[in-house]
């Protein structure tokens, strides 16, 4: 949370930013750190796409219960993204299939892409930040 609402770098240039999430949620700190960066970036009014691929799709699993490992359940925070005007969420079919998952297993609405569609989405970005 920040009091510097509607912060703007003054240039008015909107770039295409992709945040690429490829790690499972709790084994490393990447997923949580990536999510925090995305929430902060939302203040800059850029064209943000959020991609979950490889083990990153596990970040969006429904039914997560972290009481037993005594860490915060930040899977709930992905549902706040819409309120931050971050509405472009993508996963790729290949990563879901390799894990026996479907979009119904995920906690938020996502667009499921084929490999060539994902490849094109990546290619058209100005900036790709990987977690």
């Amino acid at each position: 949370m920040s009091d510097m609402d509607d912060m703007d770098d003054g240039s008015g240039i909107i770039k295409k930013f992709m945040f690429l999430n490829r790690k499972a949620p709790h084994g490393t700190v990447y997923a949580l750190e990536g999510l925090e960066v995305v929430l902060i970036t939302a203040a800059f009014d850029q064209d943000v796409s959020l991609v979950f691929t490889d083990d990153g799709v596990y970040q969006l699993m429904k039914g997560i219960d972290t009481k037993g490992i005594e860490v915060k359940d930040f899977s709930k925070t992905y549902r706040a993204l819409e309120g931050y005007d971050i509405e472009k969420l993508y996963v790729d079919r290949t990563s879901l299939d390799a894990r026996g998952l479907t979009e119904d297993d995920l906690i938020v609405d996502v667009t499921v892409l084929a490999d060539d569609e994902m490849a094109n989405l990546m290619a058209e970005q100005d900036v790709v930040i990987s977690f």
Binding site: I64, D65, T66, G68, S75
Partner: peptide
């Protein structure tokens, strides 16, 4: 390990 399965939404799978 059960707590790790649960924390990943995988307890039922």
């Amino acid at each position: 390990l059960g707590p790790d399965l649960a924390a990943r939404g995988m307890a039922g799978r």
